[in-house]
């Protein structure tokens, strides 16, 4: 009996020593000389691997930082200025401050404002729908409401509002990584500066149709009337192709444009209530008015979406 035990111990130890020797030489032979700063930087990064910086993962970004001569073109949107300061510290460079940004949905065409003109019945995927046709409303620029941006978001910072059929960004969770911007086939989502006290003013529409056509298809569309452009004292608003765009680097948040917009296409966020007719209040009123659609198709789409999400979760679990 004791013989067996001894043999076993000897054999196992021999195998162990042999393996250790092999591993030692393998480690020597395949050793890769790497800048230790890459590891340091990687540690400083948020490890979200979201791709928001333009690199596939945090390590690739760290490598790029070490290689780059200066950090001007490199920015981790998730970590923000704090993390970039750390990275710059590791590399002994000057950090370049960037304004914090947030994703903004530039479409307000909810079920109520933008009547459906047909029922979409294909795969629940915005790009599939966009490749097929202009969408289930008269507006060929607007949100398709199938939630590809929500699926793309790695930070759970977006959800679909079932009452409006539009995605909503939860600002506190949004890291401005830009995944949703890339996911949207209609280029509706834009990264804009967060602004002082999170106050922002933007045109919530990208419809380039002529005013009459746009208005017919969606009652909150920008009709390109140029009123906002004229009222703006800071040259922040430009109208191109019947569509106004507010340059967030020039806008001083004076809110003059909001007052003159005939279709409420310009939105403001996080401003205190000022007038009775302020759009913020209007918006809340609207939200109360908006009822869950009784259109079964839309409910179905929402359901399908839910199901496919479930399935996805499962398949991920499986992997």
């Amino acid at each position: 009996m004791s013989e067996i035990v001894i043999y076993t111990i000897v054999t196992v130890s021999a195998i162990g020593i042999l393996a250790a020797i092999i591993l030692y030489f393998a480690a020597k032979k395949f050793h890769v000389v790497e800048d230790p700063r890459i590891d340091d930087i990687e540690e400083a990064l948020p490890s979200a691997n979201c791709g928001g910086c333009g690199y596939p993962g945090c390590r690739n970004f760290a490598e790029a930082c070490v290689k780059a001569e200066n950090l001007a073109d490199l920015f981790c949107p998730v970590g923000g200025n704090d993390v970039m300061k750390d990275v710059a510290g590791i590399l002994g460079q000057e950090a370049i401050e960037k304004a914090a940004q947030v994703a903004v949905i530039r479409c307000s065409g909810s079920f109520e404002y933008r009547p459906r003109t047909n029922n979409y019945d294909g795969a629940v995927n915005c790009t599939v729908a966009a490749n097929l046709y202009s969408g289930d409303t008269g507006c060929q620029y607007g949100c398709l409401g199938l939630g590809e941006c929500v699926d793309a978001c790695t930070f759970d910072a977006m959800y679909m509002d079932e009452k409006t059929g539009l995605p909503v960004v939860i600002q506190d969770q949004c890291t401005a990584c830009g995944d949703c911007v890339r996911a949207c086939p209609k280029d509706i989502i834009e990264l804009r500066n967060q602004g002082k006290k999170d106050r922002r003013i933007f045109v919530s529409c990208i419809n380039e149709d002529k005013g009459g056509v746009a208005k017919k298809n969606c009652s909150v569309a920008c009709i390109g009337c140029t009123k906002c452009e004229k009222v703006c004292n800071y040259d922040a608003i430009k109208i191109e192709n019947f569509l106004a765009y507010i340059d967030f680097t020039k806008c001083v948040l004076c809110r003059k444009c909001i007052a003159v917009c005939p279709t409420d296409a310009i939105h403001e966020t996080n401003f205190p209530l000022r007038r009775i007719k302020s759009p913020v209040e209007k918006k809340t009123v609207v939200k109360e008015k908006a009822v869950v659609t009784d259109n079964p198709d839309l409910v179905n789409i929402a359901k399908k979406k839910q199901e496919s999400n479930d399935n996805e979760a499962e398949s991920k679990d499986k992997e």
Partner: peptide
């Protein structure tokens, strides 16, 4: 009634 649209 609205027409249904789907890919082929």
């Amino acid at each position: 009634k609205l027409l249904t649209v789907s890919p082929s």
